[in-house]
Design a protein around this nucleic acid. Structure first.
Lengths: 252, 252
DNA sequence: TTCGCCAATTAATCATGATTAATTCCATCT
DNA sequence: AGATGGAATTAATCATGATTAATTGGCGAA
């Protein structure tokens, strides 16, 4: 290793900003001291002596940590900066920026859904508590008529995704649940981007409803295998529907 | 130490900070004007007149956007704030905070891996370019001897994950690739947390190597099905190994 | 031409107070 | 008791300059 750090050759990374260094330092201190969510950050760390940074720079560092969901600050007596656990919600907000300019295709999303959700749903069989079932029942879109306006169609598609997200949130495997909920979110975003065109298939809503009711029944009965299969078939159906819809839109 | 269950009232969401409102406003402006990565943010937006915020507050807002990976600022003539696309790397950094306090179990991660990676690898069969193969060959850990020290074992486990991440990065389905790479990252973090204990199974390294060589051969031959199966079996093997290792550690 | 130095440009940081807003806690008041 | 009205506390924001650092582009020297 030579002492040659000529910036012309290897200067992709601009020198780290002080505020970033500060944020990293504080993060390290948190993990070093094993602070848990709810714990307060010693104001000594924030006393800008720590790394000779001025008030404003420290403020930026705190803002960065707050944006990362690591801390939250409260005013008032006993206030200050507190460690928090990044919420799934917030994590998805951050993650969604990844696909802001490079949206995945519907097919890509469904590839993942078909691989993950059947297993997820199967794992729920026989494990639903009363409140789970109640929540699912409440989420089932019990409209008695076919949707009429395009807005109607859109609303029900969203409701359908909400139902799946609710299911996913019950998963024991939180990682699995998180990924699935995020996939649903991607689909919602994709749907919003093209909130138009009425339903090409009048019976679709009926089939959705049918699926939800049957699935809950199977889960309560503890029939894991049937629930898995039903979910897979349903996803296949929905994917076909969405792709056809996308095609329609492209050609129309 | 009491467990904190205070927020029964669902936290009356403190009023949004001005800096956050500013950041949101700018994000909206970006999407409204359809700015693409590389585009420069009109300094008019940043002129603190826009929402009568002072310099410091605006600075915080910019820091938030930068942390979210939406912008980057450059000094010098022609400098300023520029729209950027959040990189996968950065996205994983942000996402990893989600599991900082609530780490998933090895079994949970492998549940996802076994569902996703066989399919991913199968999709690569017959699609590898020359440079892909070269990269894979280079990544194959061609050590001729079994690892000796614990550090050795750790290094090779990391190398194995790197190999899988490299594979995943070649996937057509970027979403699938991203999730898999993130799973590997989780495992690396888990491994770092317990970088100890020498290899309980001397032949493990050999089997890993064997897998990598055979897999590349199958992929080049375009045998999707065999590659899929091989990957699944391999994952099963590695999972068993890691779980046994975790058990050892718990009992030791 | 090619290299290195200088000037111009623009963000980053420093410095320093002052003012405003949110929140808690306690002491009255009803 | 329960409501209410302050203090007291602490973050958030405002204001204002000044100084430092990174970067670009051009100009003259090798």
């Amino acid at each position: 290793m030579t002492t040659d750090d000529s910036p012309l050759v290897v200067a992709p990374q601009r020198r780290r900003k002080r505020s970033d260094a500060l944020a990293a330092r504080i993060r390290d201190l948190i993990s070093l001291h094993q602070l848990a969510p709810g714990d307060r950050l010693p104001q000594a760390w924030l006393a800008e002596q720590e790394m000779k940074a001025s008030k404003g720079t420290m403020r930026e560092a705190m803002k960065a940590l707050e944006t990362q969901g690591l801390i939250k600050s409260r005013t008032g007596p006993g206030g200050g900066a507190f460690v928090t656990a990044l919420s799934g919600e917030q994590a998805m907000d951050l993650l969604s920026n990844l696909f802001l300019f490079n949206q995945p295709s519907i097919a890509d999303v469904f590839t993942l859904r078909k691989l993950l959700e059947p297993t997820l749903v199967g794992s729920l069989a026989g494990r639903l508590e009363r409140h789970h079932v109640d929540a699912l029942q409440a989420a089932i879109g019990l409209y008695d008529s076919e949707p009429t306006t395009a807005e109607d169609v859109f609303q029900r598609r969203i409701a359908e995704l909400d139902f799946h997200s609710l299911l996913a949130s019950f998963a024991q495997n939180q990682l699995l649940g998180f990924v699935c909920v995020f996939l649903h979110r991607l689909l919602r975003d994709l749907a919003k981007g093209r909130a138009d065109a009425a339903a090409p298939e009048p019976q679709m809503h009926e089939r959705m409803l049918n699926f939800q009711v049957r699935l809950v029944r199977l889960l309560m009965a503890g029939d894991s295998e049937a629930a898995t299969t039903l979910t897979y078939d349903h996803l296949q159906d929905v994917e076909r529907y969405m792709l056809a819809h996308a095609d329609m839109r492209r050609s129309g």
